[in-house]
Design a protein around this nucleic acid. Structure first.
Length: 416
RNA sequence: GUGAGUGUAGCUCAAUGGUAGAGUAUCGGAUUGUGGAUCCGAACGCUGCGGGUUCAAAUCCCGUCACUCACCCCA
């Protein structure tokens, strides 16, 4: 007798929230096509190896958050926890770098992570994101960041904060990590057990720890910013300059680290003060080595991913225009065929039309019209049929007019 | 994986251990070709699930599941 419910961390979306989703999706398509991004749709599951190699086998996402399963042929497959690795795979597999110009893609769709659900965090969640390939200009970094912030601004999302950092490259990061490890080992006693483990595995993450003692200790650690190679330092400088003349205010956060291993150079994150603990609206950065690591050409890339549920949470007060619904009422069941034909004409004209097939009396039909929030109700009865006309009542003003069917078109033009 | 809070009608919520209720939504009615208001009526519940204490449990205890929030991690 136990009712089957949606699995933990998943949910149903329907009216009225679904209208906001449609609005957001339309906004994404419209906005990013202005930068010549084209949509790309990749499979929802991939070979597990794509993610372990792409995202990094040491990351939390790969180690404990993947929905991995075997198919009937014994292949290990995984529901995508993010989409960048898939897009890179698709670019390589289809040789898109030889046929598509510019190499810019955007995507939107569901991602899956086995996380414990909480505010703004689901096991199946929607992300949209963009990826730019084969352009390592720092101005591109700035444009990508600008577009992310500008997009959110266009949605009237306020109270957002942009943080940026440079996480270095294979030239400078390994050397810095050793310096950081040395510093951390020297002050090991000032770190929590978790952070002590991070020293060898992923010392950058120590900067993420929210425990006051760790944060206090980490303040004394050397920062990557002071150990960047000249190339990374120059790149980051131009990114910051470009952001300034693009009028994008940002916060330099030398401790900003990304959770996925593939990032190089520029990393950024937009957070919101209006969300709960899961306050990241979007995050991204450069990943100049991922394509090569996944077997493609040596090609630079940059992108970001945004959490759509978290954006939707900000659209709470968004009011969308309501469609002008037309209700077709008939006084007697024998006029139902006429009503159906009228509805067809109206729909062909583009009006949203509803009619009740159950043949109840007019009073009932008007009540129904009220419930579907109809703007107009058309009435067909003996009188109208005989004179080849229709009565139209404006539900708000209660004005009712009777017009000839041959004048219907001009009435529609005036009112729709 | 860890912790806290909450589970009662479709929804929002009541009910000193003593017959489970209200508001709202739904359906019907207040007769004839016209809605929103008002009035009358109907239907709606294994009080998340399982055990325990008790003459008696929505209420107390244990377990379990679900939801919510936080840790962790991230978008």
């Amino acid at each position: 007798m136990n009712e089957i419910k949606a699995p933990k961390g998943t949910r149903d979306i329907f009216s009225p929230e679904i209208q906001k989703w449609q609005f957001l999706e339309n906004s994404i398509h419209a906005y990013y096509q202005k930068f010549l991004y084209r949509e790309i749709r990749t499979p929802i599951f991939e070979h597990s190896e794509l993610f372990s190699r792409g995202i990094g086998s040491e990351t939390d996402v790969v180690q404990k958050e993947m929905y991995t399963f075997s198919d009937k042929a014994g292949r290990s497959l995984t529901l995508r926890p993010e989409n960048t690795a898939s897009v890179v795979r698709a670019v390589i597999e289809n040789n898109l770098f030889e046929s598509v110009t510019p190499l810019r893609f955007y995507y939107l769709g569901p991602m899956f992570r086995y996380d414990k659900p909480q505010k703004g965090r689901y096991r199946q969640f929607q992300q949209f994101g963009i990826e730019v390939f084969a352009d390592e200009s720092p101005q591109v970094d700035a444009e990508v960041i600008f577009s992310a912030v500008d997009f959110l601004k266009n949605l009237k999302i306020a109270d957002i904060k942009l943080e940026i950092n440079s996480v270095g490259c294979p030239q400078c990061r390994p050397g810095y990590l050793e310096i950081l490890r040395k510093a951390a080992r020297a002050e090991q006693s000032g770190l929590c057990a978790d952070c002590q483990r991070k020293i060898s595995a992923n010392p950058l993450r120590i900067f993420d720890c929210k425990l006051p003692e760790c944060a206090e200790t980490a303040k004394r650690f050397p920062l990557l910013g002071n150990h960047l190679c000249s190339e990374c330092r120059d790149h980051f400088k131009i990114v910051r300059e470009a952001l300034s003349w693009m009028n994008v205010p940002f916060l330099l956060n030398p401790r900003l680290v990304r959770g996925l291993d593939y990032y190089t150079k520029t990393a950024f994150e937009v957070t919101s003060g209006q969300l709960g603990a899961q306050n990241a609206l979007l995050g991204g950065g450069r990943y100049n080595n991922l394509i090569k690591e996944l077997g493609g050409p040596d090609m630079a890339a940059i992108g970001f991913a945004a959490g759509m549920e978290r954006i939707i949470l900000h659209l709470r007060h968004l009011t969308l225009p309501r469609p002008k619904i037309m209700f077709v009422a008939y006084q007697d069941p024998k006029w139902l065929p006429n009503a159906i034909q009228l509805a067809q004409v109206l729909r062909a004209h583009g009006c949203p039309v509803y009619l009740d097939y159950q043949g109840k009396n007019l009073k009932k039909q008007f009540k129904k019209a009220d419930k579907v929030a109809a703007a107009f109700t058309m009435v067909l009865a003996e009188d109208e049929i005989k004179s080849e006309a229709v009565s139209i009542k404006d539900m708000a003003s209660q004005d009712q007019i009777k017009i000839s069917l041959k004048d219907l078109n001009s009435w529609l033009k005036k009112n729709y």
